[in-house]
């Protein structure tokens, strides 16, 4: 089968790439494996790879101890909520920038991106105080508002780059065909840009799901999402490897699974629409 030089080269590359890939993936794999071990097996020396007594005990214990599902639900609400809200605000803005560019469009876009460079610590205290005084502290609403705002520049930027790929003539055709602005956006632009919108959405769900500055600073117990749930394992529970692994696996599994099912769009989205 491996009859020529090309095939040998391919085999070599396959081995190399798989080794590197597995190496990079290993910490995740190891976490998942450890989550099924008993605490004793988890710290066994030498480490046990597959030959241990598989158990689900850690998962039930983690759920009982720190109510995983409530944190999971909080994460779902804030990441979906902020992404949908962000899209609703960003789609019209990106439409305007992509199809009715003015002299200052580039500047507005750059300015929006630059707000993303505003270090969160620069506005942490006022936001904390405003939230405390308005009762938004430790609420899902508050987190949705903050995450929408911090990810808005990225959503606008990504949608803008995707919209730019759509020929303006098609929107003009819709205009000639009697479409109002809203039907132009709803019936023509949105369906055409659906792959790009999906990529944007996926990336933002991940960014919001994993956001750990605001979610840690602005929540205590009630609205704490998975990032905070996991942070509570920093010590001394962190030394219980099996439980830490179970909690970690549960925190990252939803995103890993979502990523697995939406590979193509996600890969496109992960480049932030910035390279083609």
């Amino acid at each position: 089968m491996l009859s020529n030089k090309t095939d040998y080269r391919k085999l070599l590359m396959t081995l190399l790439a798989w080794s590197v890939g597995l190496l990079i993936f290993f910490p995740i794999l190891w976490t998942i494996l450890t989550s099924f071990k008993t605490e004793a097996d988890a710290i066994a020396s030498p480490p046990l790879f597959l030959s241990f007594d598989w158990t689900l005990e850690n998962y039930t214990e983690v759920q009982e101890r720190s109510n995983y599902f409530r944190h999971f639900w909080n994460s779902v609400v804030i990441s979906l909520g902020s992404t949908v809200l962000g899209l609703l605000i960003a789609i019209p803005a990106a439409w305007a920038m992509a199809f009715v560019p003015a002299k200052n469009t580039k500047n507005i876009l750059m300015w929006m991106l630059s707000t993303k460079m505003l270090p969160p610590v620069g506005v942490l205290i006022p936001i904390f105080l405003i939230f405390r005084d308005t009762g938004l502290l430790d609420t899902l609403t508050g987190l949705v508002i903050v995450l929408t705002l911090i990810n808005l520049p990225i959503i606008v930027w990504m949608l803008y780059t995707y919209f730019k790929e759509i020929p303006g003539e098609i929107l003009e055709a819709a205009r000639m065909d009697g479409a109002t602005l809203w039907s132009e956006i709803i019936h023509v632009l949105t369906p055409m840009a659906l792959p790009g919108i999906a990529s944007t959405m996926l990336l933002n769900i991940i960014l919001a799901w994993n956001e750990a500055f605001w979610t840690l600073s602005l929540t205590a117990a009630k609205a704490a999402p998975l990032t905070a749930f996991i942070a509570s394992y920093s010590s001394p529970e962190g030394l219980f490897y099996a439980k830490l692994s179970a909690a970690s696996t549960m925190a990252i599994a939803p995103i890993l699974i979502m990523g697995w099912f939406s590979q193509k769009q996600l890969v496109r989205g992960l480049t932030f629409g910035a390279v083609k």
């Binding site: 020929p167 003009e172 055709a173």
Partner: peptide, 27 residues
């Protein structure tokens, strides 16, 4: 007025039937 564009500007996500029906639907 009706216009035929250089790139045809057909709506790629709609069937031919829906493309042709679009202006009527808008009306």
């Amino acid at each position: 007025l009706a216009m035929v564009f250089q790139s045809y500007a057909l709506y790629p996500h709609m069937s031919v039937r829906k493309n042709i029906a679009f202006p009527l639907k808008m009306a």
